[in-house]
Write a protein that binds this DNA or RNA. Structure first.
Length: 475
DNA sequence: CTATGGCACGGATT
DNA sequence: AATCCGTGCCATAG
């Protein structure tokens, strides 16, 4: 209804309007910024009124974080997440005409840190960095090689900045736990160990994996399985499986692949994605609430230049046609933008309250939902949801950045339940037995599917899962 | 004979 | 219309 009224006001453009709304919807914040920048540059009818104030309550916004006034609990109904379009700039790369307002960061360091990977990591850890540690982080991050490993010794950095080694190590640790897991490590081993550590928190890992990467990395990379098995006192078969697990789940060169995974090289540039949506916890006394920010590429309001609007009536007759079309285009863009924001807000509001548990407590609590279901609830076309979801990245309160599409993973919750069962098993359970256990928990899936999930999670079949903490055979 | 992985089919999803 | 996912059937390994 609202949509119709809007479209009817600009008669001949209805279809164009819809088409553009859709294309805007599937753009990420970054792409949107590029689009708006281009429009601003080429279309004199558009004007950006920069305004560091909250678009809702018009109070001045803090440099980062939600609007303090709008997030005041009483303004929102209970247990609804707070969702709004945020003009936060710190997650977007600087673009023409707009400067990052981050004064704390030494400018040369920032200039050097402009590469994709370093910036990407820096954004993640920035909130946890103290101001004094920022130069350290910048130094570390700019010293990464193309594999995402640290090329220079920590000691050197410590000396350069005249700080104790421990400080540098702390910062390094922070970096290593940022998104390309293990990035900023001094060696492949170190990167692998970090990845294992983190992996171990969520799923069972083969007992010898740690020892293997620690001491036998050369064997692993040479695929010298027999030698490996001898060194670890396990069968060759197990060695092969172990190597497979490591190969599938770990990456000694964190800089290379990202969530886009195996397809490296190709789109190296786009692989590091900034969040389009940021979810944080309003760590507020009695009423913890989720705050959802939809990152907007501009601060202030994009609008029709009033001067242009006036000028159009007195346009020279040969130009009037052209001006009018520019005008229409500008109006269209603005409307579409509002439409996009509106849709996104509605979508996220619903989605966040639905997946509340998932956001806070992890994969196991993901409620399987399809885009189609959501589309009927929100009364929009399925493809609208699809477009809105595709390509977007969300930052969760735990600072992990995940693709929004993960929220629609039909089997994730079952898979984590499965992982848990296996982690807690007293003896290796066969797939059939696992299926039964899952059924007890209310997950009814076929035995065959258990096998599939297992392999997705990189878990060995029962026979090869013999707990081998103590190997008896010796050389 | 049991446990698993491969292939392929149908239905849902995008 | 193209793709993904769960599942059944069958071959194979142990």
């Amino acid at each position: 209804m609202l949509i119709q009224r809007q479209t009817s006001s600009l008669r001949p453009l209805t279809t164009a309007h819809l088409a553009q709304t859709m294309t805007l919807l599937e753009l990420t914040s970054e792409e949107l910024r590029a689009k708006i920048d281009a429009a601003l540059a080429s279309n004199p009818a558009l004007e950006l009124l920069e305004d560091p104030r909250c678009p809702h309550c018009h109070r001045l916004l803090p440099p980062r974080g939600p609007c303090p006034t709008c997030s005041a609990p009483q303004k929102f109904q209970n247990d609804e997440p707070i969702v709004f379009v945020s003009p936060r700039q710190d997650f977007l790369p600087p673009s023409a005409g707009q400067r990052l307002t981050d004064e704390e960061l030494p400018s040369e360091e920032w200039a050097a840190a402009k590469e994709d990977l370093p910036t990407y990591v820096f954004r993640q850890i920035a909130p946890e960095l103290s101001v004094e540690d920022r130069p350290l982080a910048a130094h570390l991050l700019t010293s990464l090689d193309e594999d995402g490993l640290l090329g220079v010794p920590l000691i050197e950095i410590a000396r350069y900045h005249h700080v104790p080694l421990g400080r540098v190590q702390e910062v390094q640790r922070l970096i290593q736990h940022a998104d390309p897991l293990g990035v900023g490590s001094s060696s492949p081993q170190e990167a692998l160990k970090i990845q294992l550590e983190v992996l171990a928190e969520t799923r069972p890992i083969p007992p010898l994996a740690l020892t293997a990467v620690d001491t036998c990395l050369d064997l692993l990379s040479r695929r010298a399985y027999t030698e490996l098995s001898r060194k670890l006192h396990i069968s060759t078969n197990q060695a092969i499986k172990l190597a497979a697990f490591i190969g599938e789940n770990l990456n000694p060169f964190p800089g290379r692949a990202h969530w886009g995974d195996f397809d490296q090289a190709a789109d190296h540039i786009q692989t590091y994605q900034n969040p389009d949506i940021i979810i944080s916890e309003l760590d507020d006394e009695q009423d913890p609430r989720l705050v959802v920010e939809i990152v907007s590429p501009y601060a202030g309001s994009l609008r029709i230049n009033p001067l242009f609007r006036q000028a159009i009536s007195q346009a020279p007759s040969d130009k009037t046609e052209a001006w009018q079309s520019e005008m229409d285009e500008a109006v269209l863009l603005v409307k579409c933008l509002q439409q996009r924001n509106h849709t996104l807000v509605r979508l996220m509001k619903r989605l966040v309250s639905l997946q509340h548990a998932f956001i806070l407590y992890g994969d196991a609590h993901l409620i399987p939902i399809t885009r189609a279901q959501l589309s009927v609830e929100l009364q929009v076309h399925e493809s609208t949801i699809s477009r809105a979801v595709s390509g977007k990245a969300v930052q969760l309160p735990n600072r992990k950045i995940i693709p929004l599409s993960k929220w629609f993973d039909r089997s994730l919750n079952i898979r984590t339940a499965l992982v848990k069962i296996i982690a807690e098993e007293r003896y290796p359970l066969s797939d059939t037995q696992i299926a039964e256990r899952l059924e007890e928990q209310g997950y009814i899936i076929a035995r065959r599917t258990v096998a599939k999930y297992r392999s997705i999670e990189g878990i060995l079949p029962a026979r090869l899962r013999h707990s081998t903490p103590v190997a008896m055979r010796n050389e």
